[in-house]
Design a protein around this nucleic acid. Sequence first.
DNA 1: CTGTATCCCAGCGGATACTG
DNA 2: CAGTATCCGCTGGGATACAG
Lengths: 176, 176
Amino acid sequence: MTQAAGPAGSDTDAVISLTGRFADRDAWQAEGWCRIEHALELIGTRSAMILMREIYYGGRRFDDLARRTGLTEAVAAKRLKQLVADGLLQRRPYQDPGKRTRYEYVLTDLGRDLFPVLVALIQWGERLGRPGGVELVHVGCGSPLGVVVSCAKGHEVALPDTAARLVADGDGASAS
Amino acid sequence: MTQAAGPAGSDTDAVISLTGRFADRDAWQAEGWCRIEHALELIGTRSAMILMREIYYGGRRFDDLARRTGLTEAVAAKRLKQLVADGLLQRRPYQDPGKRTRYEYVLTDLGRDLFPVLVALIQWGERLGRPGGVELVHVGCGSPLGVVVSCAKGHEVALPDTAARLVADGDGASAS
DNA sequence: CTGTATCCCAGCGGATACTG
DNA sequence: CAGTATCCGCTGGGATACAG
């Protein structure tokens, strides 16, 4: 099967085997096609990632977030503002009875969806062998969390069984 | 239940519910306990991550890696050297018959284990909605890849069912 | 082809001081 | 408590030129 790009069927996508090289990689260059780079634009900094970590660990108020991450207030403020602007967090006012209005930072759906990335990072970080640290566990059974790579149909997938598909701008959208 | 740290059973680990705050978070501070930060020390830069991406896409030679990532040779060289030093990649000489010796960069086990992080990042990057891009698919069935958060026992886990466990230096190691 | 060496600038992130 | 303002050093990464 010729799975190299080209006039094979619709021109909206092409599948190229990763296991067997793929010379056409160069044709993809285009502009900013890479989703990893898109993702890194938002959480590509250390401060952004560990702030998100702290939010997952239950932090909500500016003070806690800054102290627990070890970031300076200046950096924490700047980064939190950016994370809110980017839609990962939401700044929400709330009021304890008898106290003055405070603000808390809570996850948006987009922010919640980042969780697997954090888990994958923690899992890999453990692999580095440096002792100590915090790990996440399943509350139900107490065993540590990790991520499993699988396809949308539920098959568990290993690295050699993967291929890259070029998704053109239009996006098929049709339930092919 | 007092699940805060302290003399509860062995002192090698403590479980703190994430869903219900956890006041003792501050007690953890210690030194460099965070695995995410360990991980980010090695792949926390844009160049490191997209070089790894390119390796997963099948790139092996310096020239290809530099061009396809869009990095300058200077940056690519520096980052590749670091990735080799950190044990994610291996620089291997090889020789096409009749040609002079060349070098290629190939994944080590540690580098291979980073794959789930990349997949999680791509999956989240797609969520950002910017059209176009490349996605990874399962060669067997053609559906796109993603990651699933699950515990070591195989249960699929959602965010509210997670807790954080402090792993002390000694590491129990005993098959408790 | 596979890098090295320089120059340069923007951004991250620490420190410190100050405001509502 | 929740930031803002300023200063400043470090590194990431682009550009360009050169080397084995």
